[in-house]
Write a protein that binds this DNA or RNA. Sequence first.
DNA 1: ACCTTGTTTTGAACACGTTCGAAACAAGCG
DNA 2: CGCTTGTTTCGAACGTGTTCAAAACAAGGT
Lengths: 222, 222
Amino acid sequence: MPDKRTAKAELTRSGIVTAALRLFRAGGYDATTMRAIADEAGVSLGSAYYYFSGKEELIQAFYDQIQVEHAAAAEPALSATAFGERLRGVLESYVDVAAPYHGFGGQFFRNAADPTSPLSPFSVESTPAREASTALFRRTVEGSDLKLAPALREELPELLWLLHMGVVLFWVHDRSPDQRRTRTLVAGVAPLVDRTVRLTRLPVVRGLVDDVLVLLRSLREG
Amino acid sequence: MPDKRTAKAELTRSGIVTAALRLFRAGGYDATTMRAIADEAGVSLGSAYYYFSGKEELIQAFYDQIQVEHAAAAEPALSATAFGERLRGVLESYVDVAAPYHGFGGQFFRNAADPTSPLSPFSVESTPAREASTALFRRTVEGSDLKLAPALREELPELLWLLHMGVVLFWVHDRSPDQRRTRTLVAGVAPLVDRTVRLTRLPVVRGLVDDVLVLLRSLREG
DNA sequence: ACCTTGTTTTGAACACGTTCGAAACAAGCG
DNA sequence: CGCTTGTTTCGAACGTGTTCAAAACAAGGT
């Protein structure tokens, strides 16, 4: 492991990342070999493994990039005030940003699904990316016209992130041209979530919501 | 591919499956090599590949086995009449049945998450297993005291299957001893679903449910 | 200058999943 | 019995991700 990172080492490292991203983009994840990445970066195979524990770790760079792009692309959507509109815009912008990678998104996804992998969106290693994404949904809630019980308001961003993960899951399996079906899903689900959340102020639904919150908390500790 | 299956060939085939399952059970999926499976079955490496297109295909046998065990283990739970009780029992019995495989369940899961893989629960190849599982949830609904709009009643089993998939996802990531957290989730979520579904008869909620159904249908065609 | 210590680089080597051409086997037919 | 056709078995060989011991390099300290 590189403890004291010299300037030159950092250059080598970023060179490997750049090479990997270029090749992933061109030919997909599985088809891109570590040897090809090393060649493209102008280093030996062993050097690639000196900087990265394995092929998987190179995906993280990809994730980080998409997350940043998503945050930027979602910005315009956050000028609306209606919660449903905001949510729809934020979810849609992800589909836009991720579109170029849809072809081999599944190859990434396979690794992400492994719970033992640091690439899993639930892993500790993904915490920064996860929190950045959750922050985006927190802004979606807080800048909106939505009126809510404070307890639910606090949990909502994380629940929306979960919804986002669900959309991504759908997206990965979506073979329709230009991911039309995912867009249909987002356009339909956003207003539904809006209306559902507003319903939680009804007395009949209130008790249900409270129990959901209790369950969420007991799961978090467990 | 074996077109005309002779009796001896069928024996070789099942021998390979048995060997694979035994080794998976003992050492997990990743650690079990195709060479070891072939050895254990007393055939050559090439023979294993003559019968199975790859290591992945051997997982399907595992899935089928669990599905059958689940259906059997869920039977007692279906003697209850309250929908919430029935649902809880069915979901819980899966956790019981799958418990021995929790250790390497994630290794299977990784392959299942690949949308291009036939092992994906959404793939055409998985249709039989998926429908068998959905049938279980249809029974859960139909034998219960649940009163519902016919339209929703028709869609509910598939939605419950989706919930089941969600529970499995949670289960895979659950590192608590004896999967306590997953059991907490199931025990908590079953009554919540029960109450939520019953709420759909309220006039205020009715319109929401109708829109959900419309969305589901438009997604199915797309 | 030389040694020491730590970092970076290298390519050979390993084990694995998978492919493939060729051999062995079985069955029907003349 | 030979011959043909189709099935089954085999193991060598390929390309892959990954590991590792050794070399090259850099920077001080003496």
